[in-house]
């Protein structure tokens, strides 16, 4: 049956419903728990096998030895494609994905994040 303007009912109904969009960034938006965002490195578990470096599709992670059984990781967030292959490849589970995705910076140098070998914390200042 031809009925021009059939969508009118849906339109009028939407007028009184809550909108489906949010006013980002005034209203925050999150990602679900399993989302592959920024990586986190636990220096205490790393043994320096460099399997993560071998499997990374974009050469985004570099593991450096800074002492006896102490390793630090430098992750370039610009090169990383957030595939989490390194998380799967690591035999000691030293890497994990966090759901953080708002990673834009005005300065390209700040995108290289270094996780120090002593604390495992991210040593780059976030502006």
């Amino acid at each position: 049956m031809i009925n021009p303007g059939k969508i009118a009912g849906l339109l009028l109904h939407s007028l009184f419903k809550k909108p489906a969009t949010i006013d980002y960034p005034a209203q925050p938006s999150g990602m679900p728990k399993g989302f592959r965002g920024k990586l986190k490195f636990n220096a205490k578990l790393c043994i320096g096998c460099k399997l993560c470096m071998r499997d990374c599709p974009s050469d985004a992670i570099i593991i450096r030895k800074v002492g006896e059984k102490k390793f630090e990781a430098e992750i370039d967030m610009a090169k990383c494609i957030y595939c989490a292959q390194c998380v799967d490849s690591c035999p000691k589970k030293a890497l994990e994905s966090t759901p953080e995705f708002e990673l834009a910076h005005l300065d390209r140098m700040k995108l290289k994040v270094v996780f120090s070998a002593d604390t495992g914390d991210d040593t780059t200042e976030k502006t």
Binding site: L11, L12, S14, L15, K17, P19, A20, T21, I22
Partner: peptide
């Protein structure tokens, strides 16, 4: 128009 399309506008 935005409210009819279920958006904020």
């Amino acid at each position: 128009c935005a409210r009819l399309q279920n958006r904020i506008g």
